[in-house]
Amino acid sequence: MVLPRPVRPARTDRPDGQAPPAVALRGVVKRFGALTAVAGLDLEVPAGSCFGLLGPNGAGKSTTMRLLTAQAIADAGTIEVLGFAVPREGKRARAAMGVVPQQDDLDEELTVRENLEIFARLYRLPRPERAAAIDRVLEIAHLADRPATRVDDLSGGMRRRLLIARALVHRPALLLMDEPTVGLDPQVRAELWGLIAGLRAAGTTVLMSTHYIEEAERLADACALVSHGRVIALGGPAELVAEHAGERVVEHYGPPDRLAAVERTARAAGLPTRRTGPSVSVLKAETIGPALAAELGPDGVARAANLEDVFVLLTGERVD
């Protein structure tokens, strides 16, 4: 696979010797009328990392992405992208980043190649480099044999890949991806994971939002869990799991009153629980002593704790 070589973000040295973050949001607020979609968000995405934005529907992930491209203007707070103040220097920031939107916005009437040609121009690729750049991203997206196909005639997965190719045509230093793998079959999703990991390895900063917890677990160096427009937990996937869900989880199945009883017992002992459809999961199960184990009953099934446990625990079980 041919991977793009990114334009690295500015690395002016800071007193602490650290590279400045690729993305920095401080106290960002965005309101839509009475609704506050982003409510004082603080976030730093280290340059060169893959950063996952997790959160339930309506948490404000897409709004945050649009704030970074100056397609939404914050009511309060400051935003810096690749060292550029947004929205003031938004155009320069956008020139150095690529965006994969949640909602497909390819031109369906045009061919694969025409869609890329437009963005090769918008992203200021010099004429002699355009054709090669387009060939390169067609290769990355495994669409090298479909340049003349109309987007209308592509499958959903191909469209998604084209959307990603479009964002890479100028070798951006930062790639924003809003739910990049939604609606893809497992093979294609796994393939995209490979692509994202490759980009990151080549030095591109990746900021992705996702619903697929597994995706964040596999790809992200760090994750921010967002709820109601605020970061409620931050850290590497493994750290987040260790801190909030522990090592192991025990799942108990049974009728509703049995589940309620398990919940009561676990919580009385100070252990977090979460509903997992027809069962109750008791988190941090490695701390369960023999007495509590007896009280909870022998019907538990042990498994490793995962990021989904943390997600449900922290963002609530019901969608509101």
């Binding site: 060292g83 320069r92 437009i118």
Partner: peptide
């Protein structure tokens, strides 16, 4: 080639924007 070193797209009307719109 850092992001800052690139030609600064700061003019009010950028030829590249027109080129892209017209290519479409």
């Amino acid at each position: 080639g850092t992001a800052r070193d690139r030609p600064a797209p700061l003019r009010r009307f950028e030829p590249a924007a027109f080129a892209g719109v017209w290519r479409h």
